[in-house]
Design a protein around this nucleic acid. Structure first.
Lengths: 213, 213
DNA sequence: TGACTTTCGTTTATCGATAATTTATTCTTG
DNA sequence: CAAGAATAAATTATCGATAAACGAAAGTCA
């Protein structure tokens, strides 16, 4: 009788992903199938499938017969995400304005949480709530394809890197979300979209500037 | 000595994908691992991995212990692709205008090919060149992330469905691309982006209208 | 010495078989 | 006859072992 509800593949994938996101595995580190299998007391097969999934998600890259490594996210790639994000979040905001019907309480809560995190000097929490704010808008838009694309950008994993490299006053960062929220409250999707696009593009430019550091 | 250069997994994946795209496997059809393995004379493992990849690509969906099926693309999903496509192709066109430096010969060739296909009444070829036109712009933009997202929309697989359901005169369809080309030739990214966005949105609306059919 | 070949250890890719799970079917039992 | 338990059939998930490919190190010959 197993206590586990999920498949081994799923469990292993999640553990590996956690390790990658938390930096336990560094970019470039090799992920050797049998070695990992041994650690978890499983056979090679589920580990192999996990790695393939992580490869599809873009966290790992592998070469035939040479194995898998943690993928390094280049500064260029990081910067390239922003124009795409800006464009699809604009679309999301336009659609979200109508569907939210002025109910922006969840967004309000995220801004408040950002301020709390800023007070505590908890950078990680601040990033989480920042991302959550954006995710709420994307999820409110009702377009599944858009949501899937947004998720595929893996913004959680990348934003953290960006923020660390930029130098913005945390409370100011939180307040930058307020005009977007107000536009959504007013049901003005056109405005909300434009503001959100500019907001995201602004950070894209910050990343570009940080490139010389 | 094997004649095959690629891994079994890769080969099987490609064959299965072809069958799905060509409609040999219909949406909802079950893909049974051992059955496929037997057909190709391999073991279950490479088939299984192929199915997992196709699942990640969105062509197949699977439920634990219940197997994989060819994924059905709903009309809704089809319609939802267009706003996303419109947004990212707009970004692509803006960037492409600068990088093409007025060299639109490849685009010109695709429009010509569309007309030839229209003359031949070859709908499939027409769709291919239509998609190729858009792909050329996306590839010219230089943003790898954007390209990856565009590919993930699997426009080849979906456009075919759309076109079949719409009733546009083929030559007219081809000519609709010309203003975009001219804007790119003139290096006016802003205009090219706007035109391309409208162009894609136009088809999105066609799909919506066809929904009642 | 230096380019080429061979050998060896490591790791992935594939295999064949078994365990686990689901669905359908048959068998109770009231 | 219907509801539920037990069983059977089909299929996926996992295993342990083997084959194939790669990279590095040792060996060979001019």
């Amino acid at each position: 009788m197993t206590l586990t509800r999920k498949s081994l593949r799923q469990q292993i994938k999640e553990i590996l992903l956690t390790r990658i996101l938390q930096g336990e595995y560094q970019p470039g580190d090799r992920l050797i199938e049998l070695q990992i299998a041994q650690e978890f007391g499983t056979s090679q097969a589920p580990v192999r499938e996990s790695l393939r999934e992580l490869e599809a998600l873009g966290f790992v890259e592998s070469i035939p017969y040479r194995g898998a490594r943690v993928r390094a996210v280049s500064q260029q790639e990081l910067a390239e995400v922003y124009p795409v994000r800006a464009a699809i979040e604009e679309v999301a905001a336009r659609a979200a304005a109508a569907r939210l019907a002025g109910d922006v309480s969840a967004l309000e809560a995220e801004i408040a949480a950002m301020h709390r995190a800023a007070d505590d000097g908890d950078l990680y929490a601040q990033v989480c709530h920042d991302v959550a704010f954006h995710r709420l808008i994307v999820e409110a838009c009702g377009n599944r394809v858009l949501q899937e694309v947004w998720r595929s950008l893996r913004i959680e994993a990348r934003t953290l890197i960006s923020v660390v490299k930029t130098e913005i006053e945390p409370h100011q960062l939180a307040d930058m979300h307020r005009p977007i929220l107000e536009a959504l409250r007013a049901g003005d999707g056109e405005l909300a979209g434009r503001l959100l696009r500019q907001h995201v593009e602004f950070f894209g430019e910050l990343v570009l500037k940080g490139e010389h550091a």
